[in-house]
Design a protein around this nucleic acid. Structure first.
Length: 525
RNA sequence: GGCGCCGUAGCCAAGUGGCUAAGGCAGCGGAUUGCAAAUCCGCCAUCGUCGGUUCGAAUCCGACCGGCGCCUCCA
């Protein structure tokens, strides 16, 4: 099987071959922590978390880096507004970001460098560009000279002439409007670091060049980020790094699609930012930011993304994101999330069924960590031959530019196959189910666990419904036992009116009863 | 204006030259059930429009219609 990835640089799918055999370095552009994380920030981390899991499973030794931009104009502005230090703003929002990553099961990141902790590398990188004639200093600012970069524009198929360039007060210092800042001089009161050009802070793009180089080397394998970063951010990173080192910065540029609000365009995007006022005037930056914040808080609830994760479940959100190919735009809404969550229930019900049959938790099944370890030896067992077919199908789809949406289809097929197996051999109902068939079920379930784990799904048992306090659980369980017992007695004497009354009343409370051969079970939605 | 993306069933979504166009949600019919629920089986699309290339196209080319992104801070 051959992994192929879509490379923004070539605008085609290419066969994946790492720079160093057996090793993969991945750099993903992380957040600027001037505000709380929103759901849009999670698309990249979730897909790259999945990509890392998949590469590790394929046998690679993977290093995944996500940077935190903790110094920037927006942080400074926010700190002023709230009259706290920039460090405090960064600390709060970084913590929020990390909490939400965890909530979505993103735990594969190896290093998270901060810009403020990488000043040495950033300054050295900038100096190197100045020394080599690719950058020039003007009154404490340092700019990259785009005219010295012959390949500038190759990522986004643009010519320098077509660029409008950054405006702002620094524009008059630049040789060309397309030039961009590597180092910005500090105004009085702004956070700053000493440099050969005087006190200042890094420009937006330089930290990624410096930190990726420091951790992953001059040429690494995969550079990722949202599609909105392709220009100018990644174009500028390429210019900086490739002019500095004289070799490609990254082999493969992978960009994830952006999240869209059902009716409001890109999350945090132009539609939200450029709402016109009633008299047709464009909003000021402040108004835009306020409107965006309101939009965020309305859709995410008062607690932001963390509350959304609490409400829908991290696994539900992760599953929702992975159902669509990572390069596609995803339209996000409560309705869409609710629908995809319903689909997940199929898996959860199977896991319960698996436990009823085997007496063991699905979550205790071992997870094969590599393709080799997960290989099946189906022999002539018709069930396992089919399991193998789906497993192979899943892996082939993931090999094709991480087509998680298509691969999930195989997961559903696999569950249906295993349910059919349980039905056919009456594993759940028979007094003494055939151990051979039970064992085969176990093998199939382990394959399901292996594949789901590649997507970061079903790694841990579902947390208890948040609405039910732990202290109440035993009592609820005992009351349910009582009701089920009373209902069983009613059914025994064919008093179906009473039995149905109990079931209907429980239904109104969101509790579903299932009468099975082995007894009645209940489930709370 | 420049660069680029998308339009597949009621909804979500794979598929990018060739078996009967994955899968999910919803719906309908059936098996099962005292009735349900769960599970299983079956049904439910010719792929925005028009034209072209080809033995053959949802898949390639062109035009048009309709959405959208980037070009300025953005995951």
């Amino acid at each position: 099987m051959t992994l192929r990835v879509y490379n923004t640089l070539s605008r085609t799918k290419e066969v994946f071959e790492p720079v160093h055999p057996g090793k993969v370095g991945i750099y993903l552009c992380g957040p600027t922590v001037y505000d709380r994380a929103h759901i849009g920030h999670m698309v990249g981390p979730v897909i790259f978390d999945t990509i890392k899991r998949f590469l590790v499973h394929a046998g690679y030794d993977v290093t995944w880096v996500v940077n935190i931009t903790d110094v920037d104009d927006k942080l400074i502005k926010r700190a002023r507004e709230r009259n706290v230090s920039m460090e405090e703003i960064a600390r709060e929002n970084t913590q929020d970001y990390l909490t939400n990553l965890k909530g979505l099961g993103v735990d594969q990141i190896d290093q998270m460098p901060r810009a403020t902790e990488s000043m040495g590398e950033i300054i050295r990188f900038t100096q190197a560009l100045v020394d080599r004639g690719y950058a020039y200093a003007v009154e404490g600012d340092v700019f990259f000279d785009v005219s010295k970069a012959p390949e500038y524009g190759k990522l986004t198929n643009r010519t320098v002439d077509a660029l409008q360039g950054e405006g702002g007060e620094a524009a008059s210092k630049k040789h060309s409007s397309a030039d961009f800042a590597l180092w910005k001089s500090a105004k009085p009161g702004e956070p700053s670091w000493d440099s050969p050009w005087g006190p200042g802070r890094p420009g937006w793009h330089i930290e990624c060049s410096a930190m990726s180089h420091h951790i992953l080397g001059e040429t690494f394998d995969i550079h990722g980020g949202g599609l909105d970063l392709v220009f100018p951010h990644h174009e500028n990173e390429i210019a900086q790094s490739e002019c500095c080192h004289g070799r490609p910065m990254a082999r493969y540029w992978l960009h994830n699609g952006l999240l869209k609000r059902a009716a409001a365009g890109k999350v945090g995007g132009r539609a939200e930012r450029e709402k016109k006022t009633a008299d047709g005037e464009s909003l000021t930056l402040e108004q835009i930011q306020q409107a965006t914040a309101e939009k965020e808080s309305r859709s995410a609830g008062a607690g932001g993304l963390a509350a959304m994760i609490e409400r829908f479940g991290g696994e539900q959100i992760r599953f929702f994101l992975l159902r669509t190919h990572y390069r596609s735009t995803v339209v996000f809404s409560d309705e869409a999330l609710t629908e995809s969550s319903a689909a997940l229930e199929t898996f959860y019900r199977f896991f319960e069924r698996y436990q009823r049959v085997t007496g063991q938790s699905f979550y205790d099944l071992p997870i094969p960590r590599t393709r080799t370890a997960g290989e099946l030896a189906p022999g002539t067992d018709p069930l396992l031959l089919e399991v193998q077919r789906y497993r192979t199908g899943f892996l082939e789809k993931m090999d094709d530019d991480f087509n998680s949406g298509a691969a999930i289809g195989d997961l559903f097929e696999l569950v249906r196959l295993l349910n059919k197996h349980v039905d056919k051999h009456q594993l759940e109902d028979a007094a003494q189910p055939d151990p051979t068939h039970v064992a085969a079920l176990g093998t199939g379930a382990r394959a399901l666990r292996e594949l789901a784990a590649l997507l970061g799904l079903f790694l841990h048992p579902r947390p208890a419904a948040p609405a039910t306090a732990d202290a109440e659980r035993p009592l609820v369980a005992r009351l349910m036992e009582l009701l089920i017992e009373l209902r069983a007695a009613a059914r025994q004497r064919k008093d179906f009116a009473t039995a149905d009354r109990i079931r209907d009343a429980l239904g109104d409370l969101g509790i579903t009863l299932e009468d099975r051969k082995g007894g009645t079970i209940w489930r709370q939605l």
